[in-house]
Write a protein that binds this DNA or RNA. Structure first.
Length: 302
DNA sequence: CTAGGATCCTGTCAGC
DNA sequence: TGCTGACAGGATCCTA
């Protein structure tokens, strides 16, 4: 689940706690979640490549962490047992007793404990030589992030996939890096583009607007600490509130579009739940919305 | 090569 | 209450 803003939030928050502290021991509770042999060493830096987090140690080894859909990182400060830093997939784990059923890896540092929780086990921690991080198959394939991409470049990339629908294309990390299901929906809504439109139908102006919107929605989210809870947790922490504060369409089906007050609908695009305003995001100019249809047919059939 | 669908895994929720 | 199927903020693999 965590998309670029959430991972960036984790990177910033975790940096305050673990840089210059020593990773002393690793407990692997789920073999699938930890690739390679555990290492020890002092944390030198924490970097981010798209949705992947890299923790560099001073022994030229690094830990690559990908949270995928349900990963979380929760840091418990040993010196102050009531203090926690938690981010990733939002759940009660942030305040629950740890380790628990969903804890996959425990990283023990000299000043505290970093829990890697992951309900669905899609995420992982992988040991890589620091020098090889950029050669990692996943990292190597990543495209530029929206802030580094020029409008011309983005438009050219879209034209390379003329028959793909726009949403599937912007979710592809090798085309543009950082967007996930939330921010794809939000960016498409902000630029008034229907997610099922083929890339070949996207104009240069629309593509430029989409790129701008992607930056904007993610900037806002990072500024608010990611859409997930990411905070110092005492008895009851405050929640990261991107969805409540900024989401215009994501998980708002049945509610009014902030622009035109049409009811937001949920459809399926590229195998993913997708939220749109059927009025603001037209599939084709002045044509009835095939998709809204689509869904009612689908659900009444099954 | 592209585009779409199945798949990895666990948990939750709606509907019967 | 218990069962069943759908679905979930990601990415890869397989197929046509």
């Amino acid at each position: 689940m965590p998309e670029l803003p959430e991972v960036e939030t984790i990177r910033r928050g975790l940096s305050k706690f673990i840089i210059n502290h020593k990773l002393q021991d690793t407990e692997v509770l789920c073999d699938k979640s930890f690739i390679g042999q555990p290492v020890t060493g002092k944390v030198k830096s924490i970097r981010r490549f798209g949705k992947a987090l890299i923790i560099d140690l001073d022994n030229s080894q690094s830990l690559m962490i990908h949270l995928r859909m349900t990963g979380q990182l929760i840091y418990d400060d040993r010196n102050n047992t009531s203090e926690r830093y938690a981010a990733g997939h939002p759940s009660d784990n942030f305040t629950a007793d740890l380790p628990n059923k969903q804890t996959r890896v425990i990283l023990k540092l000299d000043t505290g404990t970093l829990y890697f929780n992951d309900q669905r086990k899609f995420g992982f921690i992988k040991v890589i030589a620091t020098n090889d991080v950029s050669k990692d198959a996943f990292i190597k394939k990543l495209a530029k992030e929206p802030w580094d991409m020029l409008p011309d470049e983005f438009y050219a990339k879209l034209q390379k996939h003329p028959n793909s629908c726009i949403k599937a294309t912007i979710l592809d990390q090798t085309i543009i890096c950082g967007l996930g299901n939330i921010y794809a929906d939000e960016a498409l809504f902000a630029s008034h583009i229907h997610p099922e439109r083929k890339c070949s139908s996207i104009t240069k102006d629309e593509s430029t607007k989409l790129l701008e919107s992607a930056k904007e929605v993610m900037d806002k989210s990072i500024a608010s600490g990611g859409s997930t809870m990411a905070t110092y947790v005492k008895a009851d922490g405050t929640k990261g509130d991107y969805l409540e504060k900024f989401a215009q369409v994501f998980r708002r089906e049945g509610l009014d579009c902030p622009n035109c007050h049409t009811k937001i609908i949920k459809i399926k695009v590229a195998g993913r739940g997708t939220h749109i305003c059927p009025q603001c995001q037209l599939l084709a100019p002045s044509k009835p919305q095939r998709s809204a249809y689509h869904l009612s047919e689908r659900s009444s059939k099954k």
